[in-house]
Design a protein around this nucleic acid. Structure first.
Length: 892
RNA sequence: GGGGGGUUAGCUCAGUUGGUUAGAGCGCCUGUCUUACACACAGGAGGUCAGAGGUUCGAGUCCUCUAUCCCCCACCA
């Protein structure tokens, strides 16, 4: 029997676990995630940044998914054909490192397995874990088109990679060159500049003696990497440095090895730094490499790929370079060649993936020439064809793009897209083609060997917006869905990914890949530190989903979210979000239980016409909310849009309208019910992009209770998003109910202040001539909500009650309410309170009248502002009179 | 060395064409298990919007400087 009052299938608290999976299944069954190509409509397209194929969902993914799904669902409800395309990245180094680690547990290396067996092992790994991240995205409610999911190593994207490589090679924009690169000795591969993270570290600045050949003097050089002296091929000084001018053109003798090396002069040497003399190591320092080129210096490489010294390092062969540093310093010291070691803090490059210190080495790698590609990509943003949200990141983008350097795209890995270049073993030809060549196109030899390297994993990511749609083939998808709408991602991969997509998109397809770039901030832990596995401060999104529900996690991630701004996530935000979900649940339970209790909805007209003042009020408030949400959504201010819905639902619908409706229904008037249902129905639509599961679940229950003529989809996900109806705006109702609310609050305030027992009603005398009718028509609400009994209108009574000292009056913006409280009012205290209020009114009025008497203000401020201020002032003056009257009645 | 961002209530943060007395959540204080919800309800305290100048009739919001924290980029050994 209790069930009839609480709804048959609704528990007292919302249970996400019992709901989410079932709802997601229903969406999949409905096929709502797959758009229908409709040439008459512009589609809304988001490509999800592909997570690592063997990865696990972390908070960054959760934020990405929440924001992207929010936009996707909103556009779907706006009626746009909507594509949210999911996919995964083979993540070259990252994945290879994981599998290598697994092998290491069995004391195996990838070399033990060999290339073929190793890649097979990685593929097994991918087969095993490749769908895990998809399952996790589904748990968050991401409404991705799973029929179009992609993987960077799939046939299509691979064809795109090869086509791009071949095209750019033939245009001369991809080339092979021997130059200095960042080398990770742990990953045993070259890295791009972006994959090197610089970090300040305390180290030493070693001052070493280099004797001049012929015994006439010495040069003392300062270095942070003394071990590289083994590869020195010169010493350099600034041409204008008088101190060392005598040494220019002479030879120095390399310490320990005794090699004779020239002393060269070069502008790059800063006389202010260290001693002003520089050891030149073209093989292991980028700046030195350039000096070497200018002076034709030989290049010596002293490192093996794994970071140990090679045969060029004499007696240090086989020893790791960091160990050599210690040893060589000892040796120099023994030989009297070490002058001193200064403590020195400088930035050291580390591998982005494994954090090992990277070493610059000279090696032959493949490069992509960037300047020409960057130009149209810069133009696309400058012209506004691509919009960046927030706008400030355009500056960061330009800075990088204008100073862009060629991109090292080859990696000495096995996991990835193998470079489609063959080297003829009988001549020096390089064959690059779409199809695997069988013979050399120069000499005809069939003795070809393929380049062993693979491409940087970001090469395939860069093609993502078009490779997933079928490019290089002219597919219907490519034609319809390209360019995409929004590229949403973290600002940390603006260069790695976003900039490169723009460049390759324009190059390959001839058009920008997306119209808007939305960059979100980082998710920080409760103390403001970026979450990272290494630091162990990660909150696991899936664990939070288990505890609070997916809706609560998504809602928490978009609470107060502002584009580009980092945000901290903590449990209290999760709780607040869960509580909000529960609030909706219970309000819905109330509405549905009452529909069931009454005769049902068969006789309702739909949508209902609000007639009662309260109904007109909540419907008008709904319109305001709808139009605010619409504005915020269009401006990508999702945090604000969400707050708008939250505040309306909790602060107006639940706190006031629902409470007011109870009073009418208790009196046997069920006319609020259609309005309750209607506003709830609209609010569920508004809220759906932010909390998809619970809104869909309630929707399914609610629409069953609506009248037969009700016409809307059975699934909220494809219902239309509310549009503000200006004919329902009602400033009068907003103002009138606003006055009623103010009055109820005033009386509650007095009750609390004077500790009136909960069950004791008070008498209230209302003096508000201009809204007397409103108060009378709302008397039932005031009586019930403020526990007033009786409610006396001052004009209709002798106002005798208001004359006694044992009463307290509150002056409101549109009237006065007086509550006689015999025996509880401290007259002196009350007088003090009123006096204080009078002072506040006076100071406010003074400020206002000062402003209003200024000629400048009157002549320069817009008329509506002046009018507003005038109204305010007259309001204050009214109040002042009423407060003063009350005070004088108390004998003050 | 360059660039960007932050500094608003005890805490975490909103506040986007400059315009009433600057908001929310959490926390705190006082009441209440009032038949939707104690994951709740009612009431309350709490802010010279980092500091100093400036522009303006009017500044949390625009400009300059200062302090402080964070992030990014950069081949100075």
């Amino acid at each position: 029997m209790e069930e009839t009052t609480t709804g048959p299938s609704m528990a007292k608290a919302y249970d996400p676990k019992a709901t989410e999976e079932r709802i997601y299944e229903s969406w999949l069954e409905g096929g709502y995630f797959t758009p229908e190509i409709d040439r008459s409509r512009k589609p809304f397209v988001i490509m999800m940044p592909p997570p690592n194929v063997t990865g696990q969902l972390h908070m960054g993914h959760a934020l990405t998914a929440a924001l992207e799904d929010l936009m996707t669902r909103w556009h779907r409800m706006l009626g746009d054909p909507t594509l949210f395309l999911p996919g995964t990245d083979h993540a070259g180094i990252a994945t290879q490192v994981v599998v290598e680690r697994m092998l290491a547990a069995d004391n195996m290396t990838r070399q033990d397995l060999g290339r073929e067996a190793f890649t097979k092992t990685v593929w097994e790994w991918v087969d095993r874990y490749g769908s895990r991240i998809y399952e996790q995205l589904k748990r968050l409610g991401a409404s991705c088109d799973w029929t179009r999911q992609g993987f960077t190593l799939d046939e299509g994207p691979s064809e795109a990679v090869r086509t791009t490589f071949v095209n750019l090679y033939k245009k001369g924009l991809i080339y092979r060159g021997e130059r200095i690169v960042n080398w990770c000795p742990r990953c045993v591969t070259a890295l791009s500049d972006l994959e090197v993270k610089h970090r300040e570290e305390d180290a030493g600045l070693y001052h070493i003696r280099y004797r001049i050949e012929g015994g006439d003097g010495e040069l003392i050089i300062a270095t942070t990497r003394p071990e590289t002296l083994l590869a020195d091929t010169a010493v350099a000084i600034n041409p204008d440095d008088d101190r060392y001018a005598a040494f220019a053109g002479k030879n120095a003798i390399l310490p320990l090895l005794g090699r004779v090396i020239p002393v060269v002069t070069d502008e790059a040497v800063d006389p202010e730094f260290g001693t002003g003399a520089l050891k030149v190591t073209p093989g292991h320092d980028p700046a030195d490499f350039e000096i070497g080129e200018r002076h034709n210096l030989p290049i010596i490489n002293i490192l093996n790929p794994d970071g140990t010294m090679n045969e060029n390092a004499a007696h240090y062969e086989g020893v790791d370079r960091l160990e050599v540093r210690t040893k060589i310093v000892e040796e120099l010291d023994r030989e009297g060649l070490l002058v001193k070691i200064e403590p020195y803090r400088h930035s050291v490059g580390h591998c982005d993936r494994c954090d090992q210190i990277v070493e610059p080495i000279v090696s032959k790698q493949w490069y992509m020439s960037m300047e020409g590609l960057a130009k149209p990509a810069i133009e696309a943003v400058e012209s506004g064809r691509i919009k960046v949200v927030p706008e400030r990141f355009t500056k960061v983008y330009y800075n990088w793009m204008y100073n862009i350097r060629d991109w090292c795209i080859s990696r000495q890995l096995w996991w990835g897209h193998r470079i489609p270049a063959w080297y003829c073993q009988d001549c020096d030809a390089v064959v690059v083609d779409l199809d695997d060549p069988t013979s050399c196109d120069q000499c005809g030899s069939s003795n070809l060997e393929r380049d062993p390297d693979v491409l940087d994993t970001w090469f395939s990511s860069a093609l993502w917006p078009h490779s997933t749609l079928g490019w290089p083939n002219q597919t219907e998808d490519l034609d319809y869905f390209y360019p995409g709408s929004v590229l949403e991602t973290g600002h940390d991969i603006l260069f790695f990914w976003v900039a490169r997509m723009i460049m390759t998109g324009i190059e390959n397809v001839g058009d920008i890949p997306f119209e808007t770039i939305y960059l979100h901030g980082m998710v920080l832990d409760p103390t403001g530190i970026k979450m990272s596995k290494v630091k162990g401060n990660v909150l696991d999104p899936l664990e939070l989903v288990d505890i609070y529900g997916a809706d609560a996690l998504r809602f928490a991630l978009t609470t107060g979210n502002s584009p580009g701004n980092d945000m901290r996530l903590n449990e209290s935000k999760m709780e607040a979000s869960r509580n909000f979900a529960n609030k909706i649940w219970n309000a819905s339970r109330f509405v549905m239980a009452n529909i069931e209790r009454s005769e049902g909805s068969a006789n309702w007209s739909w949508p209902p016409t609000p007639e009662h003042l309260e109904d007109r009020w909540i419907v008008a408030r709904l319109q305001t909310t709808v139009s605010n949400v619409d504005r915020y959504m269009k401006e990508y201010q999702f945090g604000e849009a969400q707050r708008e819905v939250h505040d309306f639902l909790w602060g107006e619908y639940c706190d006031w309208y629902l409470e007011m409706s109870k009073i009418r229904m208790r009196a046997g008037d069920d006319s609020p019910l259609p309005i309750l249902a209607y506003v709830l129905e609209q609010t569920l639509r508004l809220l759906h992009p932010f909390m998809p599961f619970i809104t869909e679940d309630i929707w399914g229950k609610l629409i069953k209770t609506l009248p037969a003529g009700y016409d809307a989809p059975s699934a909220l996900i494809v219902a239309s998003y509310p549009v503000a109806d200006t004919s329902l705006a009602d400033p009068q109702a907003e103002s009138d109910i606003g006055a009623v609310i103010e009055m109820v609050r005033a009386i509650r305030n007095l009750r609390a202040e004077f500790r009136i027992e909960a069950n004791r009603n008070v008498e209230a005398i209302v003096d508000a001539p201009d809204i007397e009718k409103v108060i009378e028509s709302e008397s039932a609400a005031i009586v019930a909500l403020a526990q007033v009994d009786p409610l006396i209108m001052a004009s209709g009574s002798s106002s005798s009650g208001a004359g006694s000292g044992d009463s307290v009056s509150l002056v409101l913006s549109r009237g006065t309410v007086t509550v006689p409280l015999e025996g509880v009012v401290d007259v002196d205290r009350e007088k003090a309170r009123l006096t204080e209020e009078l002072e506040q009114i006076d100071s406010g009025a003074q400020r206002l009248s000062a402003r209003l008497s200024k000629a400048d203000f009157l002549s320069k401020a817009p008329p509506e502002v002046i009018e507003k201020e005038r109204t305010r002032l007259s309001g204050l003056e009214d109040r002042r009179i009423r407060v003063a009257e009350t005070l004088s009645r108390l004998g003050g």
